[in-house]
């Protein structure tokens, strides 16, 4: 007879060792990403053009730069959670799965950091466009 509760036997044996929090954060970030992208699309459509000067001038405004930073965090978080589920569903070999999830985390953080830094550089870059 195993002196172990059913919960103790299954704990840590899920496909990714966690589940409910992942599910909830995916929903949470989906709402924030959708709202921020609606703001993003409306903002771009209201700009007189999408040339370099117009876009960088727009991104220098705090009311554009801050929502953009939030959009980057929200979007990259959501896409990381989503792609991780896809990997866990289709990559069955434990080693490849671990490697794929590791790579996904690195690429997501790298992409988000690049986008984040780009916004900060434009926002803090001063008035003269760095042409």
């Amino acid at each position: 007879m195993r002196m172990e509760s059913p919960l103790g036997r299954v704990r840590g044996l899920g496909s990714a060792r966690s589940g409910a929090r992942h599910w909830w954060l995916e929903r949470l970030t989906s709402v924030s990403t959708l709202l921020l992208f609606i703001w993003f699309a409306v903002s771009l459509l209201r700009l007189p053009g999408l040339d370099h000067e117009t876009v960088t001038e727009w991104l220098r405004s705090p009311l554009a730069a801050v929502p953009m930073l939030l959009l980057i965090v929200s979007t990259f978080w959501h896409l990381k959670l989503g792609l991780q589920v896809v990997i866990e569903d289709y990559v069955h070999q434990e080693g490849s799965k671990l490697f794929s999830v590791l790579l996904l985390n690195f690429l997501t953080i790298a992409g988000a950091a690049l986008a984040f830094f780009a916004i900060l550089k434009i926002a803090f870059g001063g008035d003269a466009p760095n042409a």
């Binding site: 960088t56 690049l114 986008a115 916004i119 466009p129 042409a131």
Partner: peptide
């Protein structure tokens, strides 16, 4: 999206 932002931050 990242390309667009990095290009905007790099140069005209």
């Amino acid at each position: 999206f990242v390309w667009w932002l990095v290009a905007a931050a790099t140069s005209a």
